[in-house]
Amino acid sequence: MPTANVNGVTLNYEVTGEGPETIVLINGLADDIESWGFQVPDFVDAGYRVLTIDNRGIGKSEAPAGPYTSRMLADDAKAVVDQLGITGFHLMGVSMGGMISQEYALAYPDDLKSATFACTYAAPGPFCSRMFAMWGDMAPQLGVPFVMRDVTLWAFTVPFFTEREDELKEFEEGMAALPMSVDAYLSQLNVIQTHDTRDRIGALSVPCLVLAGEEDILIPTRLSKQLHDLIPGAQWRTVPGGHACLWETPGPFNQAYLNFVRSHS
């Protein structure tokens, strides 16, 4: 896969499709570009070119010393799209990627036709902050794969556990085999612990969609709704599933996103 040497780090990326407009997808915590496997084919079939990027610290990108911030990773994404000469694109980030996308939209609004913030928040608040602090304590003692096993419990709904055990086992095996160092994990974890756009996000003029899983308990849906309420004119959509709705119910997730993007193409 191609790489870009930007901001002192080598980042892995992939461009799929040849559509006249581009969708740029930003990963969540400890997710590499393979995590978009249920989205990229649908978006390409809908006529879009898709750019995915391994954030610093994951996948085939380098993992320089941290901690990282949402603005730092937004600047990384900006450097990649600039190197590729991409402008006027649609940006979507999920979870941590939604935080990075908020910073991108605030810093570089002229690049965007639309921005979508999925399963994310403007600030973590006391509930999420306590959860993330536990992950930070667990990772050095028990390892990143153990923490990701815990994340699986929060990410999917009860019906997924009871009705789709084969798929669940695939996700659990993938989590257990995650090749991410503790240092890189903690560097990315800092992004979701320190992100806060509450006093700035209301200035956005880019067309925005805030998208959430109806049963998200990891980043509670109410936090996504609070983010939506801070952005004048933003659209709000929920889809079936929990925090991992892009994997658990990709059909409704993809359709909700494409309906929004088409309205701004």
Rank of each mutant, 00 (worst) to 15 (best):
F132S: 07
I23V: 15
L211G: 09
V50C: 10
T152H: 08
E165V: 15
P41S: 03
V210C: 10
I219H: 00
F117Y: 12
L204I: 07
S95T: 09
L51V: 13
A256E: 05
D196R: 10
V44S: 10
H243S: 03
P41I: 02
G97Q: 05
N190M: 04
F156S: 04
L91C: 12
V81W: 07
L178D: 08
P220N: 04
F260K: 11
E62Q: 15
V206N: 00
R71A: 15
E163H: 14
S35M: 12
T162R: 13
L168I: 10
F117G: 12
I192W: 04
D75K: 13
P2Q: 06
P124Y: 01
R164E: 11
M134H: 03
A63Q: 09
F38Y: 12
T120L: 10
P41F: 02
F253S: 01
E34S: 15
T16F: 06
G251I: 03
F89Q: 02
G97M: 10
C128L: 13
P67Y: 07
G98L: 09
P159Y: 01
D150T: 14
S61T: 14
M1K: 10
V191A: 00
L230V: 05
P2W: 01
V147W: 01
A46L: 03
L246Y: 08
I86E: 01
M134Y: 08
L189Y: 02
D45F: 05
D75S: 11
A77F: 01
G66H: 06
T238I: 06
P20M: 02
T116H: 11
L218Y: 08
S101K: 06
F38D: 13
P240V: 06
F171H: 11
L168G: 04
L25R: 03
L153P: 07
T197C: 11
P145R: 03
D196H: 10
L142A: 09
T87L: 03
A177L: 09
F146M: 09
W135Y: 08
M131G: 10
G59T: 13
E173W: 01
F156N: 07
L209Q: 00
L91N: 08
T197R: 04
N12F: 08
T22Q: 04
M175D: 11
G17H: 09
K225F: 10
I26E: 04
M92A: 13
L106M: 08
I219L: 02
P250S: 02
K225G: 07
